[in-house]
């Protein structure tokens, strides 16, 4: 099978995966033991209100009709509306309202993980069995084992108002508190970052500083993973025959490292990097709850605990789409980077 044939196959496989994943969500929400209508109403609902909501959601129809409605509306991106969190608001608007902060958080946590984890791992791999390698490896292993929620509250404790570094953190750069959402007002007109840098860059820096602790926490597990895998990947390639040949030919070390080691060592890192998406979506619930950032993870958790099941279904669908797209992206990157793909699997 050719490379693009392999990619095409993966692309086709994504369709049943999305359908089946959404079906699982449907089954949990509608066929599960929790009645969506009573979850929305809470303990003090009148029967009239009950009937009205039931009719509105189409829950009085047979299950298979509900299923078809559910699937058709989701796949046409009719995401319904929120019932408890923000009644009578379209789920679409809610997502647009909450998503930017999560994207901001996710962007920086991916960036931190990439630009700290991979260089550290490569450094450790290029200097194996030295004290700095041991330090970096051990740090990566412990860093990876730290639960997000614990790291988050420790950071909040240390950098918060009453913490030992609280004062120092507040006065570092623009004044911000560690808890609370970042102000992303400058996003409404991103071009102003270029046209009026004096006004907008302080806002940008404040938003960056605000998100930094949360991004460090969220990137922690991936950072450790990237370090570990990066180290083994470099070690594997640097001991391979073609590197030895290049060295024997007299290729300078710099060009060996960048041309022959670096590119090949990136291949096993691809699934780790794309796999970050899974950790980010799961971790955002915890990190956003602890740091008080009202993003998508926070929205999802509030929707679940307050019984806003229609909104939960829509959010789940968005997350599924996102993860499947990331998976496709991973296969795409594989196809581009690794010419052997499709032949060995």
């Amino acid at each position: 099978m050719s490379r693009w044939g392999y990619f095409l196959r993966r692309l086709l496989l994504a369709v049943p995966v999305v359908i089946f994943g959404t079906t699982i969500t449907f089954l949990i929400l509608r066929a599960g033991p929790l009645d969506p209508v009573s979850a929305i109403l809470g303990p003090t609902g009148s029967p009239q209100a009950y009937n009205r909501i039931q009719e509105n959601l189409g829950l009085n129809k047979p299950l298979w009709e509900q299923y078809i409605d559910f699937m058709v509306s989701l796949f046409t991106f009719d995401l319904g509306q929120s019932w408890v969190i923000n009644p009578d608001t379209d789920a679409y608007d809610l997502i647009l309202l909450f998503a930017p902060r999560t994207i901001w958080l996710g962007f920086w946590s991916v960036l931190i993980a990439l630009f700290v984890g991979i260089p550290l791992g490569f450094y450790a791999g290029l200097h194996p069995n030295t004290p700095s390698d041991y330090l970096a490896s051990f740090g990566g292993i412990v860093w990876r084992a730290m639960p997000n929620f614990w790291l988050a509250i420790i950071l909040v404790g240390a950098l918060g108002l009453s913490g030992p570094f609280g004062g120092a953190w507040i006065n570092l750069g623009p004044q911000t508190n560690i808890i609370g959402p970042p102000d992303l007002g400058f996003f409404s007109d991103p071009l102003r970052l270029l046209t009026a840098p004096g006004d907008t860059w302080p806002d940008f820096l404040a938003a960056l500083k605000k998100i930094a602790p949360a991004a460090v926490v969220l990137g922690s597990a991936s950072m450790g993973n990237e370090m570990r895998i990066g180290r083994t990947a470099v070690l594997e390639t640097i001991n391979s025959n073609y590197v030895e040949t290049a060295r024997a030919k007299g290729v300078p070390r710099r060009s060996i490292v960048w041309k022959h080691v670096f590119r090949n060592a990136l291949i096993p890192l691809v699934p780790i990097i794309t796999g970050e998406a899974f950790l980010l979506i799961g971790g955002s619930v915890i990190v956003e709850t602890v740091f008080g950032i009202n993003g998508l993870g926070y929205l999802f958790f509030q929707a679940i605990t307050q019984g806003d099941l229609p909104l939960v279904g829509s959010l789940m669908f968005i997350f599924i789409l996102l993860l499947v797209v990331v998976n496709i992206l991973q296969d795409f990157l594989y196809t581009i980077i690794d010419p052997r793909v499709g032949y060995e699997r």
Binding site: P16, I28, I281, G282, F301, L323
Partner: peptide
């Protein structure tokens, strides 16, 4: 098996677990 397991993996794990434990909380 690939399709079923990919579908389960395409649901964010921690969120799925939170969802399930809330849905089954009254049973």
């Amino acid at each position: 098996a690939v399709i079923v397991s990919d579908s389960i993996q395409s649901l964010p794990r921690l969120l799925l677990i939170i969802l399930l434990s809330v849905v089954f909380a009254e049973t």
